[in-house]
Design a protein around this nucleic acid. Structure first.
Lengths: 179, 179
DNA sequence: AAGATATGTCAATATGGCTGACGTAAATTT
DNA sequence: AAATTTACGTCAGCCATATTGACATATCTT
């Protein structure tokens, strides 16, 4: 199985040496992020398959659970999809009783979204698997190091985003988890 | 715009808090990962749009560039898709000259894949944007902290994966399960 | 010669994005 | 009060990317 020249790959083979300082690319972090995220969402996929849902359902019910009373428009900002795309998924979650909606009291055009106990249970099941992965990965770090990890992830995010949910997260992200 | 009770959301509303402890969930890391990865791939999306490609093309040409001589079967393992899905994307990249293939010398059934200069340029352009984001996020960390960040990302990955590319990335390390 | 393997391909289907257009109720502005 | 804007829903169709199953071909292994 020595077919692929992984050694060449690791030491970097073809680099445009035209300029003097090609500004080294962070292949290491780029690929670690790819695989970390792949396995991270893989945890949720296992659960979703059992419920006949896809990743889109996860994202919707997750944010609705976490930010009760979220408006449809807020959700569109967070997920960065169109209302048509959201509509399909949201309708299923409403029909199957994972989410309910109430009209806004101040503005009755708004449909405020809330997760039901059923929806909460689904979210918690997936978050449980992902939390296990996270705790496993964080197990041997000093408190200062785990804080650095949080700050790094926060630093990877575009902070100039007008998204309201994101503002909340970035405002409180430096604290530790609640509960 | 005080419609949504973000405050309630942050302090968490519907959680069985009275009991001994349902194992606190790491909502903080879960959501930071979501947004960090969303913006991270967003960098590549900008470039891909200009080329008329999608994320699938990025993944393929990235790994082919990074691990020259990769077999089709290896690529399927890394990307975790079927060969039918890969075939469509790979064919485009071959037709448009981003990738070339050569028959394996020891096993001529194999099609070993290599990125062309054109393919390499595309990958480098996307990696450049992502590297800028990474360097920005890592700017103010001590060396020990950046090492911790890499170890964390590595720890988030399933190490018992038979995937050959992953083994190289993880340092050709053990086959130890995730204890 | 027989079987397994690596790859390619055809056909059908599902999911989850997209755009554009239109409708309705409710809030806001004039 | 009327006009306009906003929040949301929906219909219709298109595209990208994923799926499964079946089958073809070349090549390596036994």
């Amino acid at each position: 199985m020595a077919d692929v020249n992984f050694d060449t790959a690791v030491t970097r083979s073809i680099e445009p040496a035209a300029e003097r300082g090609p500004a080294p690319l962070r292949w290491d972090i780029i690929e670690l992020l790819f695989f970390a995220y792949r396995d991270f969402v893989g945890d949720a996929d296992q659960v979703l398959d059992q419920f006949g849902f896809g990743r889109a359902h996860h994202r919707v019910v997750h944010f609705v659970h976490r930010y009760p009373g979220l408006k449809v428009a807020d959700l569109l900002d967070v997920l960065r999809i169109t209302k048509q795309s959201l509509g399909r998924v949201l309708k299923q979650l409403l029909d199957e009783g994972y989410i309910v909606q109430k009209s806004g009291e101040m503005d009755r055009r708004q449909r405020l979204l809330f997760a039901t106990a059923k929806g909460e249970a689904l979210v918690a099941q997936m978050a449980g698997l992902q939390t296990a992965r996270i705790e496993r990965a964080l197990r041997d770090f000093a408190p200062g190091e785990t804080a650095a990890i949080s700050r790094f992830l926060s630093g990877m995010i575009d902070h100039d985003d007008p998204d309201k949910v994101l503002q909340v997260i970035l405002g409180t992200a430096n604290g530790t988890s609640e509960t």
